[in-house]
Each structure stands twice: as structure tokens, then as C-alpha cells.
Design a protein around this nucleic acid. Structure first.
Lengths: 92, 92
DNA sequence: CATGATTGACACCGAACGGTGTCATCGGCA
DNA sequence: TGCCGATGACACCGTTCGGTGTCAATCATG
């Protein structure tokens, strides 16, 4: 699922944790972070350390993907296709 | 592309930035972070703030996705399918 | 009711982050 | 040669993150 904000990531984590029937404490131990971190992250704390998130995601058997927003083929009307622009200019 | 570690995310960011012919400074301004952050992140700094990464990714027209590792249907042999386990136990 | 597990919340505190500013180096260019 | 942009690197410093510990509230259960 697309993740645009920390809040969305938090929702993903919380939902997954609940689905896996893990307590915050269990997840924290699995991921090697503190329960406080889990609690605060799920609560939508605006700042969070990427490394911790990666570990938590791993503990939840979730993976993270990065991909170009304009998925090569088409782009929404009005949207700027950076890839296309760059390709067009790729000679300098 | 799958992102397992900060280093991989850093590589993604750097590669993308170069491809878009943006300087660290330009990217930093676009994303609203400091050049130092960009530089250190690309250099593989072990700790980084998720919010900043999200903004940088956005400035690079990249998106982030979270998905279950064992893609619902099948799992590799020997791999543990947590979803399946949980489903089987979902009565307690 | 008593017990235990889970969770939200807070204080404390050391460690690290992140911004600003600065410097040297490297490469391109006139 | 001299200039300029980009980058790696560092010091300084305020902010705040993250861990530990603790507490009250909630809920299920015996």
C-alpha cells in the first residue's frame, strides 16, 4: 500500500501488528526497539527514525518499496512527468 | 525497488537525484531539508528521520510502498507465512 | 473481587539529529 | 590561470529522539 505520510505508515504498522496479534511489547522486542517507540510511532509521532521503522517492518513481515511515482507508462493529466523530461534532456 | 536497509534507500535517492540532474542543494531546497541532511543520508548515515525521507522522496517524484512480504497467495518454500499462521489461529 | 496483560502517558537523561556556517577539493569553462 | 558550481567534511549548538522506569485505566479471566 502506498505510504504518503508517517501517519499512513503508522496505520500500516498498527493494523499489521494487531492482525498478527502481537502486543506492542512483543513487537518492540522482536524489532529490537523500545515499546515507547512503537507506541509513539503508532500514535503518529511526526518524527521517527528510519532504521527503527525498517526493523519494525521486518518484524511484522512487511517490506518497503521505492518506485517512481509516474509509473513509466502514463501520468495523470496536469501532472509533470519528470522521467519524461529528464529523458528528453538526457543529453545535457 | 525493494528497500531493506537505509543504505539501499540512500542509493535510491542518490541515483534518482543524479538522474534528475539535481544538486544536493537543489534537492534539499525542494524537499525543505538541509543540504547536510541530503549529504549525510546519501553517505549512508545510519540514522535518518522518516519525515525528511518522505519529503525528499516526494521531491524526487518517488513513492513509498508497504506490502506484506509473503505476497498473500504463495510463499517461497521454507519461508514462513505469517498471514497463513495467523489466519489459522484467528480464533485465539 | 482479585489478578494479569495491554496500553496510553509521563519524567528523566544521555545521545544523536539536523541546521547553519565554513572550508578545501575537484571538475568544467572562458 | 582564474572563476564558479558541486561536494565532502567539520565545528558548534539547540532540539528532541529514544530507552528506562513508572503509573493509572481498561479489559478479560479465574
Amino acid at each position: 500500500m502506498l505510504v504518503r505520510s508517517i501517519g499512513e505508515a503508522a496505520a500500516q504498522v498498527r493494523g499489521r501488528r494487531l492482525r498478527l496479534r502481537l502486543s506492542q511489547d512483543q513487537l518492540a522486542q522482536r524489532a529490537g526497539v523500545s515499546r515507547k517507540w512503537v507506541y509513539e510511532f503508532e500514535a503518529g509521532k511526526p518524527h521517527a527514525e528510519l532504521g527503527h521503522l525498517l526493523r519494525v517492518l521486518d518484524a511484522l513481515d512487511l517490506q518497503l518499496d521505492v518506485s517512481p511515482r509516474n509509473a513509466s507508462s502514463e501520468s495523470a493529466e496536469g501532472a509533470v512527468n519528470l522521467d519524461a523530461i529528464l529523458e528528453a534532456h538526457h543529453d545535457g
